[in-house]
Computed example of a mutant assay.
Amino acid sequence: MNKRLCCLLLALSSAAGPAHAGSASPQEIIEQAVQAGLRATGARGLALAVIEPGKPAFIRTWGERNAAGAKLEPDTIMYGASLTKTVFAYLAAQLADEKKLDLDRPLADYLNRPLPDYGNLPAYGNWGDLRGDDRWRRITARMVLNHATGFANFAFVEPDGKLRIHFEPGSRYAYSGEGIMLLQFVLEKGLQLDVGKELQRRVFDRFGMRDTSLTWRPGFARNLADGWKADGKPEPHDERSRVRAAGSMDTTITDMARFATALVNGEGLREAAHDGMLRPQLPITTRSQFPTLQANAAPAERVAGLSAGLGVVTFTGPQDPGYFKGGHNDSTGNMLVCLRVQRRCVVILSNDVRAEPAFAGIVQAALGETGMPWQWEYGPAKTSVP
Rank of each mutant, 00 (worst) to 15 (best):
N153H: 14
D231Q: 12
T292K: 12
G179M: 00
F167W: 13
Q94G: 09
A43T: 13
Y110R: 05
L46E: 13
R258I: 13
Q319N: 04
I77K: 06
E369L: 11
A308Y: 06
G227V: 02
E239G: 10
A148H: 00
F207N: 09
G371Y: 08
H274D: 13
E168R: 07
A33V: 15
N2F: 08
E168V: 01
Y90V: 14
N223A: 12
Q364V: 12
A108W: 00
A92F: 02
D330R: 10
D231G: 08
M181G: 05
T140E: 01
E52L: 11
Q294T: 14
R217E: 11
T292V: 15
G311H: 07
I59A: 06
F185K: 00
L83P: 04
R137I: 02
S176K: 04
Y79M: 04
L214T: 03
L193V: 01
R279I: 02
S23Y: 07
V34I: 09
T61Q: 00
P357T: 07
Q200M: 01
N146F: 00
D97A: 08
F290C: 09
D211A: 12
N120Q: 06
L107G: 06
A246K: 11
D238T: 08
S171P: 02
G368N: 12
G132D: 06
V312L: 12
D226A: 02
V341M: 08
T261N: 05
Q364E: 14
Q342F: 15
F315C: 07
A24R: 02
D102Q: 11
D129L: 03
D75H: 14
K100L: 12
D129M: 05
L101F: 08
G63A: 06
R206I: 02
L282G: 09
Q364W: 06
T251V: 07
K100V: 05
V186C: 11
A57M: 12
G379K: 03
D102W: 01
A273I: 11
R138C: 00
Q200D: 04
S307D: 12
H166W: 08
N146W: 04
L130G: 07
L193H: 08
Q319E: 07
I30K: 00
Y175A: 09
Q342Y: 15
F154V: 15
K325G: 01
